[in-house]
Structures are given as C-alpha cells and as structure tokens.
Amino acid sequence: MSALSQIRKINKRMPTLLPGIILLLILVIPPTLGRPFLDLELTQISSSRINIPPGAEYPLGTQSEGRDMLTILILGTGATLKIGLIAGAIGLAVGAILGMISGYFGGFIDKTISAIVDSFITIPPLAILILIAAATKTMSIEGMGIIVALTAWMQPTRIIRSQMLSMKERNYIRLAKLSDMGSIKIIFTEILPNLIPFLAAAFVNGVSTAILSSIGLEVLGLGSQQTLSLGMTIYYANYYSAMWRGIWWWWLPPVIVIVLIFIALFLISLSLDEIGNPKFNRL
C-alpha cells in the first residue's frame, strides 16, 4: 500500500514519468523476456514466402526477402535499444567523469575540458560517424553502440559539470573540505548521491541522442549487417521500394516503434527536467 502511495506521489510531481516508463517497458519486454518464445529461424532470408500481407499465419506479414516482419520488428526493437543503451552508458560514464573533474577542480582542467566539449558539440557528429562507418568493413550492434557513443557524451558532461559547480559551493561540501576529507572521497560519498537525478537525465539524453545518430547512419545503409535494427529494416524497405509497391507492413511498423521509443524517452526526460528546473511547474 505504501509503495502504491509512493508511486502516486511521484506521479503527481512528475506526471510524464510513469507513462514514459510504461511505454518503454511495453517496447522492451518482447525482445527481452519474450525472446525464448521467438522462432529465430523466421529472421533468415527466404524462411517464409515473400510479401504476404498481415494475416493469421504472419501477424505482421512478411517482406520481400521472405523474413517474418513480427520477429524482425521485435528483435530490431531490441537491437536499436541495445545500441542506445551501450552508447548511453558510455556517454554517461565519460560525461560523468569529465563533468565531475571539470566542475570540481576548475581552472585550467575545466577550461580544457569545456573547450573540447564545445568544439565537439559544434562539429556535426554525423559527418565524422559517416566517415568512420564507411571506412569500417563490418559492423555489429555493439560496434554501432560504441561508434555512436561519440555523439552521446557532450551533453552529459555539460549537465554534470554545471551541477558540480553549484554543488561544490554548498556548505556541507565546504565542511567536508575543512575536515580534510580527500577530493575523491568527497566526490563519491558527498556529491555523487546528490547528482543521481541529473545523472539519470543525462543518461536518458545520451540514449536518445545515440539512437537518433544510429538511425541517421542506418538509413544511409551504414548499420549492422548481421542483426537487423529498426533503422536497417527501414533502409531495406526503402532499398526494395516497399512504399511504392504498397507493402506498408514492411516500413510502417518500424517507423511507429521508432516514434514510440522517442516519445517514451521524451516523456521521461521531460519529467527529469522538472527536477532540474522547478520553474516549469508554474506553466
């Protein structure tokens, strides 16, 4: 009962958090918990008859290479989210470390790190990603995650740095410094726990940026060839002119899932922003 009232309280303060998380869970469960129930054979080329519209036998039909759309869609959702998760985690780790160092120590280190972040934010990341992806021969989902992580660390660094700057001026941190606690210990035991909401916001931001970049690369055909992600599914649908041929069940489902992923992440980040900027509550 108390857990329920707790949830109700959070929901009142951040009304978009719960819908976002539920939406995301609906998308995450099939490729993770549902995986044992999937027939992986059906993702193979010519495992089924081609171009069958959605019906009893194939709930979402099959595409022109003879793959079952429902299985592809579920696995693709998992692959796309995995890319986002890997890149988001790398981005968060790099961003948190750089941001904390930059904000805590200040001075020359801060200036250097900030300059690097600023220049990376302005250089269009997709341009560099295209060069790297075009130069590498084969690409896996994990490799994709690592490459797009290049675009996902700047925003976390900025968020954490600015929080660090305000945090270190607080009285309890001054007290900890006066009582001769080491810098590392202060950062980890006194500051880090207070940064958790901002780390969460930075993580969601990183995941969303990474998925955006990965889809940018994939629609150019630079995605993983081994596992079909949502972006690659759309690339092949485009490649085989699915839209002109009226095979809407090939390109529309991945488009809808991508839109749902971005809306879910948007709802979550909107609620996390609310913690950071309570000013919006008035609107």
């Binding site: 969303s208 955006l212 889809i215 940018g216 629609v219 759309i234 839209m243 002109w244 809407w248 390109w251 529309l252 488009v255 991508i258 839109v259 971005f262 809306i263 992440l265 948007f266």
Partner: peptide
C-alpha cells in the same frame, strides 16, 4: 513530440500520408 522524432522518420510518414 514532433521535436524528438528524426526528420527522416517524419519524412517517411508525410510522404505516405500526403503523396500516397
């Protein structure tokens, strides 16, 4: 919500709705 959707994905949806 549109601001979070990649342009490319929006383009596909618009193409389908208003050209096909």
């Amino acid at each position: 919500p549109f601001s979070t959707i990649p342009y490319y994905i929006l383009a596909l949806i618009l193409l389908y709705l208003f050209a096909i």
